[in-house]
Write a protein that binds this DNA or RNA. Sequence first.
RNA 1: GGGAGCGUAGCUCAAAGGCAGAGCACUGCGCUGUGGCCGCAGGGGUUGCGGGUUCGAGUCCCGUCGCUCCUCCCA
Length: 426
Amino acid sequence: MKIGAVRGMRDILPEETPLWRHLEAEIRAAFRLYGYREIRTPLLETAELFSRGVGEATDVVHKEMYVFPDKKGLLLALRPEATASVVRAYLEHGLYAKGGLAKLYYFGPMFRYEKPQKGRSRQFHQYGVEALGSLDPALDAEVIDLASYLVERLGLPREGLFLRINSIGCRRDRDRYREALRDFFEPRQAELCSDCRRRLSENPMRILDCKHPTCQPAIQAAPRSTDSLCGECGAHFQEVLAQLERLGLPYELDHTLVRGLDYYTRTVFELASKDLGAQDALLGGGRYDELAEMLGGPPTPGVGFAGGMERLVLVLRERLELELGRELDVYLIPIGEAPEVKRTAAWILAQLRRAGLAADMEYLGRSLRKATQVAARLARYALYLGPDELARGEVKLKDLGTGAESAQAIGAFERPEMLKRMLARG
RNA sequence: GGGAGCGUAGCUCAAAGGCAGAGCACUGCGCUGUGGCCGCAGGGGUUGCGGGUUCGAGUCCCGUCGCUCCUCCCA
């Protein structure tokens, strides 16, 4: 093979697209039930949107983002995530001026320049929701309930799933918390790995994310973000948790959950699966009450989540052996090379399709036996047309389920309703 | 960014320095114009790519590209 796909970019082959379509349909249906409407934003944005929104210092932006200048030298980026884009669109089109809550969902490819591995490629696909315009903790709970309903609806077994949740507070809380972490880890630098010693000055909250065993004792003993919450943020978090309990959604408080995007405030959560490898997060999200301002808009609170399609496919592929069914109604097999036969066959095909029947024809000149085998795999009916049939003005219709054959007048193909009745009878 | 393993037919994999193979899939035939079972036959390959060692390299060495997994980070 001369030219292959770009590293980290995968083809989704016809074998797998039915599963993708199924998942997308279920996800859309769930989003609709919760009152979300679809938004589609460009794959390409100015790089600044993400460096300001997601954060210049985050891995996603400064290490993993595809950035390049366009022909005028403007720095563009392939979106590494969608929340910043959605908020940008919300501000740009003045959706806040329309009043009320904007509940939006999206679907589509995202790009991050990383080492591809299980459950992670450079182009990957996310689905997600964003609820913009309300501070109500009930909305945090609703978004989490939606995530939970979604995985239920998709048939993921509850045992393999766990919901982690935490609150990192508002900006002032986070500033205070960062100081508390610095004060705590500063004298314990010797207990930290080299990465974490660097994080100590750059972004001490990321130390909590570290999986390095040597860091664990210090991390366990570290102050918790929930202890730095102001009164409002503390009350908000308590109400979110109370709502989750009322909804019957089990969760585990994870004080080390801080997430890698700068825009998060207050509630952060993750739904993870034990069936995935190192990349176990199925979906993740939280609140981002300051993002709109960071992008130059009016203060607009928001909460949402994003999930990875590839990871859903990984977890569901075996479990969801879809009854694909045969995708064709009719497979037409012309017999011999006579031009008049082939022309009539082509005409019949066209009529079938216009009558709304999925139909295809044997184009490879395979033996009748082989062609019939292929027909049986693809279609419910086989249609045979050879010189004999043509001379009689007929075709042979074979029900590939029962094996029953009957002769049908070619003229019948001029009337779609006749066709449908013919095939419905079987 | 760091680490480990692997690249041979469309797919899954053999060949432990000496003739590139099997199963599945594909095509034809047994069954002259009709599927599911069975049998027979056939087509398929620059062994990822480039260099090196050797009488001889799929096999050993170096490089490169790619894949997989871990770490990291995240969806």
